[in-house]
């Protein structure tokens, strides 16, 4: 078990290193990052000065080592536009994104878990039908369009909720709904098929044969075993929500990391953009590691592999 955890930990470190390498390369994809940063009317002298100031005239491997060295110390460069440490800017926006993601996940789970249970145990019922319709819709409808439709109905027509910004709790409702629909669809789907799979297990038949009531079989035997894939999807979806809120944040003018990233891209603020990609990917990798630890705790069989 210790070996499993150590192996996973080393893999996580490797992953973080590779994420760093990718983020570093993103800036050099075009061949010359300086030209991406400067406005079109900049002179050659300006370009050279900026190149030297940013250390971009050094050989690539040295630049990469510098980048990794600085990243380890928590320095992801300085935003060209705000002239502040990029990491600090990202972290300042993180609470807004975390709040939005958490609210979205909460909405998703509150709906998806009962929906998954009912649709698996009462197959063919109207709830099962509704769940599959909502799942397909949730996976097909573009988030930005749902967001706009919600704005039209609840903000423009009914004037019930604010259309944009982050203020009173009411302002969280529409963006969280928009963002939560996709994980809701996904979790309900995974939970349903996972329960259906467990229902066919021998130990479930045994439990029924012992004369246990359905509720007891479900809660003691089925749901416990069926919940492992749900933990996975929930954690991974949460991880990707932290980076996937760009569109929702853009529709609702929500001041989070996603909008910061979009701003950085539109302003050609490359260090800031690299920092957002790095932070979001790092969070995802760390959540993955935490998830591995949760598995070991949930399902002792995993330790064997």
């Amino acid at each position: 078990m210790t070996i499993f955890i150590i192996r996973r930990f080393l893999l996580t470190l490797l992953m973080l290193f590779l994420v760093g390498l990718t983020v570093f390369m993103l800036g050099h994809l075009s061949g010359d990052p300086v030209r991406l940063m400067v406005p079109d009317q900049a002179t050659e002298a300006d370009i050279e000065r900026l190149r030297h100031a940013l250390g971009l005239d050094l050989p690539l491997p040295i630049q990469f080592l510098d980048f990794i060295g600085n990243a380890v110390r928590g320095d992801l460069g300085t935003s060209l536009r705000y002239r502040q440490p990029a990491l600090q800017l990202v972290m300042e926006r993180m609470p807004a994104t975390a709040e939005l993601s958490a609210a979205a996940m909460l909405i998703a789970l509150v709906v998806a878990i009962p929906a998954g249970i009912i649709s698996a145990t009462r197959r063919g019922s109207w709830i099962d039908g509704l769940t599959s319709v909502v799942s397909v819709a949730g996976q097909s409808l573009p988030a930005f369009w749902i967001g706009i439709m919600l704005i039209i109905v609840f903000a423009v027509q009914l004037r019930l909720l604010p259309a944009a910004g982050r203020g009173d709790p009411g302002s969280l409702v529409l963006p969280a709904l928009t963002l939560g629909l996709w994980p809701m669809a996904r979790i309900a789907r995974v939970f349903r098929s996972s329960i259906l799979e467990v229902l066919h297990e021998d130990y479930v038949r045994t439990a029924y044969a012992k004369g246990l009531r359905e509720r007891v079989v479900l809660s003691r035997h089925v749901l416990r075993n069926a919940s492992i894939p749900v933990v996975t999807v929930t954690a991974l979806t949460f991880g990707s929500l932290l980076g996937g809120t760009i569109i929702t944040e853009s529709v609702f003018a929500w001041p989070g990391v996603g909008r910061l990233a979009l701003e950085a891209i539109n302003n050609r603020d490359f260090p800031l953009m690299q920092a957002t990609v790095f932070v979001v990917a790092a969070i995802f990798v760390v959540i993955n590691f935490a998830l591995d630890l949760v598995y070991v705790w949930l399902d002792p069989r995993i330790r064997l592999t």
């Binding site: 990718t22 993103l26 991406l36 996937g244 979009l262």
Partner: peptide, 19 residues
């Protein structure tokens, strides 16, 4: 795994910003 760790939309947008 690396590709899955990188946020998809953010990754695509950054690459588009470059090219």
């Amino acid at each position: 795994d690396l590709r899955l760790a990188l946020p998809f939309v953010l990754l695509v947008i950054s690459v588009i910003a470059v090219f």
